[in-house]
Structures are given as structure tokens and as C-alpha cells.
């Protein structure tokens, strides 16, 4: 009986994450899409950083705005120089909390993340639905949400307003590993 207890304890220790543990994604993907009748614009950033504290469910995301890859170089130029002004505001940062997150639950769970995304120097509150997949302590977060260009004080010149949607769709995917800081 005692042997069985210790065997179970050993298995539980191996599978369940340490409550003080933080996990990190160094190559998260964030993509955004703008759909208009004139043109569709897509950009991908594959080096987005995210850290989750499993103890309290807090999450932080940081991305370099100049690391978004566009189909056309000219689009990238407009994005960095005219819209997000990445020289002045090089990072987009999200800080939030995964509501009712249970890091010990295996498989899929759908949760809401409430937090503030700061881009172009403008903070904006967001509530984002995410799917969390936990496979023996390896977590993958995915989701999609929409946000408005005007929420970040980004001014699109009237001449280009037909090319850029007011509403931007954002997709994300993060694969987390244990974080040893």
C-alpha cells in the first residue's frame, strides 16, 4: 500500500506542473488581417514572446512591431513608418489574466483572457477567448479576436482609407515550454 502511494506521488509529481512554475513561448505567432474590397493585407510575426505564471494565471506578451512580415515591402514601410511608428513605439505589449485557468487540467479548455494591450503608446482593454491545450504540461494557446484601428490612435490618410479596414482580425498561437529564469 505504501509502495503504491509513493508510486502515485511520483507520477503526480512528474505530470503536474510546479505551482511556482512559469512557462515561456519565445516563438509565438501573431498574425493580423485587414480585409477590404480594394485589397487584403496580412502580416505575420513569428518571434512573439509570452510568459505565463501558472500559479495565478497572469500572462504577458511582448512583440517587436518591426518584426511583422508583409507580402509587399511597401506595406511594411507604411505600417512601420506611418501607422505604428515602430521607431518611437518599438514594442506591442499585452498584460492580462487568464480567468479561471486550471493548469492541472489535461486536454482542452476554453478560457477568457482579460488584459490591456498597449500599441503605438496607447493602452486598450481587451477580452480575448482562447483555447488552451495541455498535453502533460506542454501548453498551446490559440485564438482569434478583432480590434479597431482607431483604438490605438492610428491615423490612416484619407487616400488610403479604402485600402485598410477599420476592424483588424488578429490570430495567435503560442507553444509554451518550462521557463528557467
Amino acid at each position: 500500500m505504501i509502495k503504491q502511494f509513493f508510486a502515485l506521488l511520483l507520477i503526480a509529481t512528474a505530470i503536474l506542473p510546479d505551482s511556482n512554475e512559469k512557462i515561456i513561448a519565445r516563438q509565438g505567432r501573431v498574425s493580423f488581417f485587414s480585409y477590404t474590397t480594394v485589397e487584403n493585407i496580412q502580416a505575420d510575426n513569428n518571434q512573439v514572446l509570452s510568459i505565463i505564471d501558472l500559479e495565478d494565471g497572469t500572462i504577458a506578451v511582448s512583440m517587436l512591431m518591426n518584426a511583422f512580415v508583409f507580402e509587399k515591402a511597401l506595406m511594411k514601410g507604411h505600417f512601420n513608418e506611418s501607422y505604428v511608428e515602430s521607431d518611437l513605439y518599438p514594442k506591442g505589449i499585452f498584460e492580462g489574466q487568464i480567468i479561471d485557468f486550471d493548469p492541472n487540467q489535461q486536454g482542452e479548455q476554453i478560457k477568457m483572457i482579460d488584459g490591456v494591450f498597449t500599441m503605438h503608446g496607447v493602452p486598450n482593454e481587451l477580452s480575448i477567448k482562447t483555447k488552451i491545450e495541455n498535453n502533460n504540461g506542454t501548453y498551446v494557446l490559440t485564438g482569434t479576436f478583432e480590434t479597431l484601428v482607431e483604438d490605438y490612435d492610428i491615423k490612416v490618410p484619407p487616400l488610403l482609407s479604402k485600402n485598410i479596414s477599420d476592424r483588424i482580425e488578429v490570430n495567435f498561437r503560442f507553444e509554451f515550454q518550462p521557463y528557467e529564469n
Binding site: 515561456i24 518571434q47 514572446l49 517587436l64 518591426n66 518584426a67 518599438p90 514594442k91
Partner: peptide
């Protein structure tokens, strides 16, 4: 060189 997060990013 694109910048610095936890790591250095090169594209």
C-alpha cells in the same frame, strides 16, 4: 537585426 525581447531577433 530587429531588436531585443527575451532573446535577440534576426530576420
Amino acid at each position: 537585426l530587429k531588436g531585443f525581447l527575451h532573446d535577440v531577433i534576426l530576420l
